[in-house]
């Protein structure tokens, strides 16, 4: 992964390398979600620059932002955000539909990713029939299905108990071990400590940037 430098809020200079697993910490109002939204092209920024895999991300219209999101980014949300009337496998296949991939191939890819998160048997279940941890794993499978450059997780364990949180985090770690760049926004130290790098924000500026592996 290439250069990733951006100026957010009160001036943030940050570069995330390909294959990193980064935790972004901070109390509410610190700007951590805004940072993630800008990285996720869900929000715009006024000044500075943001390059993703060498591509400048600036002044995107809705259509272009949608295409970039689909191509580069996978999202995992605190509240899972699965489409409740679609089965697990249909949820996973949905980003592929927007990539214009044929139905049969979509099905195969989605199945593969469900297997990867250990939910192959639950493919035909609706989200309402799954536990919180399972739902989050479906969401992770969906985020991965489009083969994004970056996986963005906004409080991925916020709605889960500590044991399930750990399971989900080890899945995230496993995906990272396979080479995927992952950003996790969290306010829990245990979660952050599982990452390779912890960036702490306060009032819109980075106050610490610790590499846990050093």
């Amino acid at each position: 992964m290439g250069e990733n430098s951006l100026h957010v809020l009160k001036g943030i200079d940050l570069k995330i390398n390909e294959g990193e697993l980064v935790a972004i910490m901070g109390s509410s109002g610190s700007g951590k979600s805004t940072l993630l939204n800008i990285i996720g092209m869900l929000d715009n920024y006024d000044s500075g620059s943001y390059d993703l895999d060498g591509i400048p991300i600036k002044d995107l219209n809705e259509t272009k932002a949608a295409k970039y999101r689909n191509k580069f980014l996978g999202f995992v949300f605190q509240s899972f955000n699965l489409i409740n009337y679609k089965t697990a496998i249909e949820n996973v296949a949905l980003p592929l539909y927007y990539q214009g991939i044929g139905s049969k191939e979509r099905q195969e890819i989605a199945h593969e990713y469900l297997k990867k998160v250990g939910l192959a048997k639950w493919a035909e279940h609706l989200p309402s029939e799954l536990s919180g941890g399972q739902k989050q794993r479906v969401a992770i499978a969906r985020a991965l299905a489009s083969q994004p450059k970056v996986l963005l997780a906004d409080e991925p364990t916020g709605a889960l108990d500590s044991q399930t949180s750990e399971e989900v985090m080890s899945l995230i770690k496993k995906i990272n071990d396979e080479g995927k760049t992952i950003l996790v926004v969290t306010h829990e130290h245990e979660i952050a400590n599982m990452c390779n790098r912890i960036i702490t924000l306060k009032d819109g500026v980075i106050i610490t940037d610790i590499n846990t592996q050093e």
Binding site: L42, E62, T63, N81, R142, S146
Partner: peptide
């Protein structure tokens, strides 16, 4: 959700 995973307007 659809927009976040790549649906255009």
């Amino acid at each position: 959700i659809r927009k976040a995973i790549g649906a255009t307007p």
